[in-house]
Design a binder for these strands. Structure first.
Length: 639
DNA sequence: TTGGACGAG
DNA sequence: ATTTCTCGTCCAA
């Protein structure tokens, strides 16, 4: 039934916007800089720049007032503003922490749980439910003394507000002079007005934590985000669409690239098409001989693109298909050009889809095996740390029914922590340094990454080992083989400009964060997952009995005791060290990594010796001996 | 499943 | 020296 709508004639009809929802967008003002200012308040008022390697990731408004810009080279920024205070923002941990805190403040005020983070410094809220509830509560005779209820159960919880006006700015600004009571005859306007006060209240809550923000209020995500940028720092804007022209006019004024969802590739394809098919008669593209001009220097507005006579959703689809890129979402771009965005605000899962760590080596690319192994080990260790921070929670469950701690039990901590999800896949990505030769024809091709992935070895999920040792093992056992797959040749150095290590493919562990065991959910059949979780737990408890704790360093691996920490010695089995995950970085056969047979390791003295492990006959991965029973259990369950 | 392309901050 | 460090979705083989 869509085919009729896809004919160009019908597709160009006036678009129909869904205005049933109310969406808020928050953007924390110069977030990274604010985090540092709050960590160290003496920085407030000084021009502050946050750098990552050679660029300024962001800067505060004091710095911007002096001409410093985001994403400026550090050297340029210092020339522009000699007394610029610089802090290093390469470690994202404090930003993640602050982001989570602010997000939880917003989430605490949501009824629907639809509170979606975009990056670390933006949040969308779908507040349709709260707003509609308060819409029904409005007393037309006492609008000035309204009360916004934040809770159905507790009518006292909320804030007073004046329902005869909007909180913050409105767009178009002309509506400020409009008779507000007339405006409020429109139920959509009433909802947006209510939402503006809610947004103002929430921004005030964020300011109590010393974070200012910019807010956008509209009926979908794209419009809320776009309109939030109209009054930038520390303010908010509500997009009022009384007539369709208002919203379309607002979107039309933007450059193509400014529309979220239209990236550089899409914008270039659309723009190239529009420019190359514009005839001299096309009045919209003005006097410039744009057709002959370098396309990259032009930035068409949405309005200019929409003026193109034959443009339609279908034509866009053909443009994207023809470029052998993009799926069937010419429709999506067409919608975006008209301010239509049906995408839902997603409820937070609490579990990231992937966790990755990376480092760049622009100034001095990595070339020697020693450097590469050192970096792989460092990245592996931070990745394990991140996995613990993001995927492991304290376990409040009482395990009274299981074996009590044995005498001298050292796992008091470990049995109180558990994974909320297991990543199944490990991926290593690298980027080689841009081929610096050719001048003009250099494309953005140097930007490309390549990657290899494999199942994540299960020992990474062992909470008993210290992170450093797990990290070392991960590097030796898994990352090195992946690296060899990625770079099978050894011609004169690798010239690596970037390494990224990622875990993904999360399998949520049965029982949510607040679940309190299978006893709580009496749902008979669906409890299979929780039974599996229980089996894992009992398995671990059994394993613990077999684990010998020893403060002595491992005899065959002196690097393991560099931390001096006590570490469990693996229980060995007779098929000792059958396979090695490490192998030769430079000369290992390309097929070795995928073969179940271990390859010789002539450079074993260079690389980490991994200690006792063997390959699983089912999946071919090197498994530390102590983890084999659990690994087999894993296979038996069938994932 | 794997590896890439693209889009977001 | 169009960069930083991520995260998410979609697509094809």
């Amino acid at each position: 039934m869509n085919t009729a709508a896809l004919t160009s004639g019908r597709a160009r009809r006036a678009p129909k916007r869904n205005e049933d929802r109310v969406i808020l967008h928050f953007d924390y003002d110069c977030f990274y800089a604010s985090v540092f200012e709050n960590l160290n308040p003496s920085l407030k008022g000084l021009p502050l720049g946050v750098k990552q390697k050679s660029i300024l990731a962001t800067c505060n408004y004091a710095a911007r007032a002096r001409g410093v810009k985001k994403l400026m080279l550090v050297s340029e920024a210092q020339r522009t503003c000699p007394d610029l205070v610089l802090v290093c923002g390469e470690d994202l941990t404090p930003f993640r922490d602050a982001s989570k805190t602010l997000w939880s403040v917003l989430r605490a005020h949501s009824w629907s749980g639809r509170v979606e983070r975009l990056g670390l410094d933006e949040v969308f809220l779908d507040v349709t439910d709260v707003v509609v509830y308060n819409q029904e509560l409005l007393n037309r005779n006492a609008l000035r003394d309204s009360f916004f209820q934040l809770s159905v159960l507790d009518p006292e919880k909320g804030f007073s507000f004046d329902a005869t006006r909007f909180c913050g700015c409105v767009y178009p600004p002309a509506y400020l002079e409009h008779d507000l009571l007339t405006l409020l005859d429109n139920p959509l306007c009433v909802r947006l007005m209510l939402a503006s006060h809610l947004a103002g209240y929430l921004r005030h809550k964020l300011e109590e934590l010393d974070y200012t923000s910019s807010g956008g209020i509209s009926t979908n995500k794209v419009l809320a985000k776009l309109v939030g940028s109209v009054n930038k720092p520390r303010n908010q804007t509500t997009l009022l669409g009384l007539q369709d022209d208002d919203v379309q006019g607002f979107v039309d004024a933007h450059k193509l690239r400014q529309i979220p969802g239209i990236g550089s590739r899409t914008a270039q394809l659309v723009q190239d098409y529009v420019l190359s098919t514009s005839t001299a008669a096309s009045a919209t593209i003005a006097d410039d001989d744009l057709v002959g001009q370098a396309h990259s220097t032009t930035d068409l507005t949405v309005h200019q693109v929409r003026q193109h006579p034959s443009l339609s959703a279908e034509l866009l689809s053909r443009i994207f298909d023809h470029a052998s890129l993009e799926r069937g979402s010419g429709d999506k771009v067409w919608d975006l050009l008209h301010g239509i965005d049906p995408s839902a605000v997603k409820a937070a899962s609490g579990i990231p889809a992937q966790i990755s760590v990376e480092d760049t080596y622009m100034a001095r690319p990595l070339n020697t095996p020693t450097e590469i192994v050192r970096e792989l080990r460092a990245l592996a260790t931070s990745l394990v740390r991140r996995m613990h921070a993001d995927l492991v929670v304290a376990d409040s469950r009482e395990e009274v029914d299981l074996a009590p701690p044995a005498a001298g039990e050292s796992s008091l901590e470990t049995r109180r922590r558990r994974w909320t999800a297991h990543p199944k896949t490990l991926r290593l990505s690298t980027r080689v340094r841009p081929p610096k030769l050719s001048g003009p024809p250099t494309a953005a091709e140097s930007f490309a990454r390549s990657s290899r992935s494999q199942p994540l070895p299960t020992f990474v999920l062992n909470l008993r080992d210290v992170v450093e040792s797990v990290g070392e093992r991960l590097a030796a056992d898994a990352l090195l083989p992946l690296f060899r797959r990625l770079h099978p040749e050894r011609r004169g150095g690798w010239n690596l400009a970037l390494i990224n290590v990622c875990v993904t493919n999360m399998v949520v562990v049965a029982g949510g964060i607040e679940e309190s065991g299978s006893r709580r959910t009496g749902a008979g059949e669906g409890a299979g997952g929780q039974d599996i979780a229980r089996m894992f737990r009992t398995q671990e408890d059994k394993l613990r009995e077999w684990t010998v704790y020893d403060t002595a360093p491992l005899s065959d691996d002196p690097t393991h005791d560099t931390t001096g920490a006590a570490k469990p010695t693996e229980v060995r089995c007779e098929e000792e060290v059958e396979g090695r995950g490490c192998g030769d970085l430079m000369e290992g056969p390309t097929t070795a990594a995928s073969s179940p047979e271990p390859d010789a390791c002539p450079y074993a003295d260079v690389w980490e010796d991994e200690g006792a492990s063997q390959r699983c006959r089912l999946c071919g991965h090197a498994i530390p001996v102590f983890a084999i029973p659990a690994h087999e259990r894993f296979h038996a369950i069938g994932d």
